[in-house]
Design a protein around this nucleic acid. Structure first.
Length: 804
RNA sequence: GGGGCGGUGGCGGAAUUGGCAGACGCAGGGGACUUAAAAUCCCCCGGGUUAAACCGUGUGGGUUCGAGUCCCACCCGCCCUACCA
């Protein structure tokens, strides 16, 4: 009955059967524990990439493992279908974005099916579908009605290539480039829609309820950038209020000048006639160069004196006001008190322009002199030159945890000169995009009534199909002759639609909810499904979204919770990130480099199971690494050998009970390890353990173990252990070769027999002074004295024991 | 400047968390089978030695009977972030 292993035949066969049987349909079942395994949905950019497989296939294997453990597992899939590449294709190739997108989705669905994943396709959701974006718009309106969305004019990042604004998170690198096209962004002053993500800043850095990687927690914590300190109310000499934020209120007495961001609104007022020209020039220079050079790392400090003065509220000192581009309008108040003695940047600035330096913190054994200090002192010490606070000790701690700081803050509050304050780097989320292929922002502007949301019964606000594509890349929505004309939902007079669309991260912030009930029309999701499936138990995907999608979706959930739409504080309990598959040359895969590995070709050549197995095996999943096209042969050989072991006639011979026992011990040790490794996302050692175990089984089989009555049971357990990783071959061998009832994927994950984990013989490792001298097999229940005696008399160790 | 991750054979990587370093696989070498090749199977595969000793997990110290693993100091690579007051 020797059949050849032909993945090209068995894989499509089982995929079709599983689908026809609805094997992986996940329905509410109150008698079973649910498990929501979510993997990040792809953007339909063309073909499925090996990176998609790398992310999804091991996630699928783990979801299957959970299913075999008895969970009711939901493993859905969908498409993040709005976005700029579709529009670029439209401009360059004259294809409508919708056509381009949905054609790609059709192709990717086929490719995804070839993976043999346990996707419940009934739950597929596509964000560009009107039945989906209706609810994206609905969420916008909920936010607007509850003071979480607002419109504001502000300087925003603008990509001249993509012709749109970007969220702060989408601007990368030293040179402030657009994350998509790499073009340097410029600042534009525009009226845009924002979400109040900052309202949740503190909650977003609280990870106490979720099991997320340290790396992501750190990234998000840094991104939110919480600083504790105080606001201090300075005044200009003319009496205008000029508040600053500082983390070091203890150094207030050492403030010898003040620096405003060049764009600060008070600059004009404080600038004197003599300085006006210099200030203007500097402002223009700063605005022109913007971000690019302002961010340059080791840049020399530049700045201009305004001619104006501020009064330090703690000692009435009259200090000069400068403007300099090292102070950013976007953080704090865009104004700082400069304490050159205790801040490196202020120190550099003071030395550059010959400004006064007054030390106010002194560690023991030091005697600072502002004239001669070589660098700013930022450590702890005792307050000096600080009036009634002289002698107060300040530590390294931040905020009120630092007793010295707390004392100063209390005093500032008592005297009404300032107050405790917390500042964040996190900005509100800018969601307006000047693009066509996105969910229209469902707002109407009326000269009388201002901005108002489209009534719920008029949702969705549909994208018009008949649009013209201009090579300038300007949004065709804005240029459409009639689309924006409507009536004001409040007064009924003519109104104008918002022609901007929403950032696609808005769509992906809630797709895990749409999966629950993609057909549901009474709300964004069916509450019954929500109650059963949410929260997501494990979320897998790339780490590149740490400061974007993964912050947005947490914000979204918390905001919806406060609106009574969702429950619980977090959408995803556990997060695990895979690494990246690089090209064979060690570089990032790209068409231009010609180092792209196509999963379709690999599936044609080796079959999906081999590709899945190799993706789990070839690197640590969380690290990834360069593709090695030779290495896949090892996985191919493994599956061939598995096939042969199951299909070849047994060798002649009797086998000893000892051998069978030792095989079973190896089997259960492997089972123990594979079970543990699935829990830990350590996929590479799952495959290597299975390979190792196969080698053991083959050796035993050659000695005649195949004739032993326990042999079939051993093979069954081996198949069950393989099933999550390589589902097709496991099914074929289970159903067709072993003749067991369909389906292997409905079987229980085997239990480890603890008795088989106990070895009856162990190898005694004999070390003398830490060096290996001998190894002797002894019974596992050997007594301590016996072991000691064996060790001391061992032939290997004896020569090294002389003279001890 | 700040933060994170990492450094183990020719390569990807193991090492049950302080106890046999290099599992498993790739590549390589040798052999069997074959007219031949492929496939398959067997053996070898860190350095060193006839064999041992000995050396060996980025470097230098330390703790320990014993360190890839813990502590201190440093070097290198990659990624993120950045004049954040």
């Amino acid at each position: 009955m020797v059949k050849e292993y032909k993945p090209g035949e068995i894989e499509p066969k089982w995929q079709a059967k599983w689908e026809a049987d609805g094997l992986y349909n996940a329905d509410i079942n109150e008698n079973k524990k649910k498990f929501y395994a979510l993997t990040m949905l792809p953007y339909p950019s063309g073909d499925l990439h090996i990176g998609h497989w790398y992310a999804m296939a091991p996630s699928d294997a783990r979801a299957r493992f959970k299913r075999m453990q008895g969970y009711n597992v939901l493993f859905p899939m969908g498409f993040d279908a709005f976005g700029l590449p579709a529009e670029n294709a439209a401009i360059s190739r004259g294809i409508h974005p919708q056509e381009w997108t949905f054609d790609n989705i059709d192709r990717m669905r086929v490719q995804l099916r070839s993976m043999g994943a346990m996707i419940d396709w009934r739950r597929e959701a596509v964000s560009a579908d009107p039945s989906y974006y209706k609810w994206t718009q609905w969420f916008f309106i909920q936010f607007f009605n509850n003071d979480l969305a607002y419109r504001k004019r502000s300087p925003v990042d603008w990509c001249p290539q993509c012709n749109t604004t970007l969220a702060r998170e989408q601007v990368h690198g030293d040179d402030r480039h657009c994350e998509r096209c790499g073009t340097q962004v410029i600042k534009k002053d525009l009226e845009q829609w924002f979400f109040k993500t900052t309202k949740y800043a503190d909650e977003l850095i609280d990870f106490s309820q979720i099991d997320w990687p340290d790396r992501v927690r750190t990234l998000q914590t840094n991104w939110v950038g919480r600083s504790e300190g105080a606001d201090v109310y300075f005044k200009t000499e003319e009496g205008a209020e000029l508040t600053v934020f500082t983390t070091r209120p203890d150094t207030l007495w050492g403030a010898t000048f003040m620096v405003l961001a060049p764009e600060h609104p008070l600059v004009d007022a404080v600038t004197t006639a003599e300085q006006r020209e210099a200030v203007r020039n500097y402002q223009q220079e700063a605005a022109g160069k913007t971000e690019i050079q302002r961010a340059a790392a080791d840049k020399e400090k530049t700045g201009v004196f305004t001619g104006g003065y501020a009064i330090n509220p703690v000692n009435e000192a009259r200090i000069p006001i400068w403007i300099a581009d090292y102070v950013m309008m976007g953080y704090g108040y865009g104004a700082i008190m400069a304490v050159p003695a205790h801040d490196e940047r202020d120190f550099a600035f003071a030395r550059q322009f010959g400004l006064e330096i007054i030390p106010v913190i002194q560690p023991e054994g030091e005697n600072f002199d502002g004239e001669t200090m070589a660098e700013a002192y930022v450590g702890p010490g005792m307050m000096i030159n600080s009036a009634q606070f002289n002698g107060t000790q300040v530590t390294d701690d931040k905020g009120r945890k630092n007793p010295g700081l707390a004392k100063v803050i209390d005093w500032l509050e008592a005297e009404e000169l300032g107050k405790e304050a917390i500042s964040y780097k996190l900005r509100d989320w800018l969601i307006s995009r000047q693009r066509y292929w996105g969910a229209p922002i469902p707002m109407v502007h009326c000269a009388e009534c201002g901005w108002n949301p489209v009534p719920e019964e008029d949702l969705p606000v549909l994208l018009p199909k008949d649009v013209e594509w201009l090579p300038t890349g300007e949004s065709p929505l804005k240029l459409h002759p009639t689309w924006k004309e409507t009536t004001c939902p409040v007064c009924g007079e003519p109104g104008v639609r918002e022609t901007d669309t929403m950032d696609t991260f808005m769509c992906s912030s809630w797709y895990h909810l749409r999966y629950l009930s993609p057909e549901y029309s009474d709300g964004p999701f069916d509450p019954r499904e929500y109650d059963y499936w949410m929260p997501v138990d494990v979320y897998t995907g790339g780490i590149e979204h740490a400061n974007m999608h993964l912050i947005y979706t947490r914000f979204f959930h918390k905001a919806l919770r406060d609106l009574g739409i969702t429950e619980g504080h977090e959408p995803m309990l556990q997060l695990r990130n895979q690494g990246m598959v690089l090209g064979e040359d060690g570089e990032k895969m790209s068409k231009s480099r010609g180092n792209v590995v196509s999963p379709d070709d690999l599936v044609n050549q080796y079959g999906a199971d081999t590709v899945r197995g190799y993706l789990m095996f070839f690197a640590r999943w969380d690290l990834g690494g360069p593709w090695n096209s030779q290495g896949i042969a090892g996985t191919e050989r493994w599956l061939n050998r598995v096939w042969n072991l199951f299909t070849e006639e047994s060798e002649e011979g009797e086998v000893s009970p000892d051998l069978i026992k030792s095989v079973k011990q190896t089997l259960h040790a492997a089972l123990d390890r594979v079970t543990r490794d699935y829990e830990r996302f350590e996929f590479n050692t799952i495959i290597s353990t299975l390979m190792e175990l196969l080698n053991t089984l083959y050796d035993a089989w050659r000695e005649g173990a195949g004739n032993h009555p326990e042999w079939p049971g051993i093979l069954e357990t081996y198949l069950l252990m393989m099933a999550p990783a390589v589902p097709h071959i496991a099914e074929e061998l289970w159903t067709e070769v072993l003749g067991k009832p369909y389906s292997v994927h409905n079987q229980q994950w085997p239990e480890v027999d603890p008795e088989l984990l106990v070895k009856d013989e162990i190898t005694l490792i004999i070390q003398v002074n830490g060096k290996l001298r001998d190894r002797i097999d002894v019974p596992a229940d050997i007594s301590e004295e016996e072991a000691e005696k064996t060790a001391l008399t061992s032939p290997g160790a004896a020569p090294f024991l002389e003279g001890e």
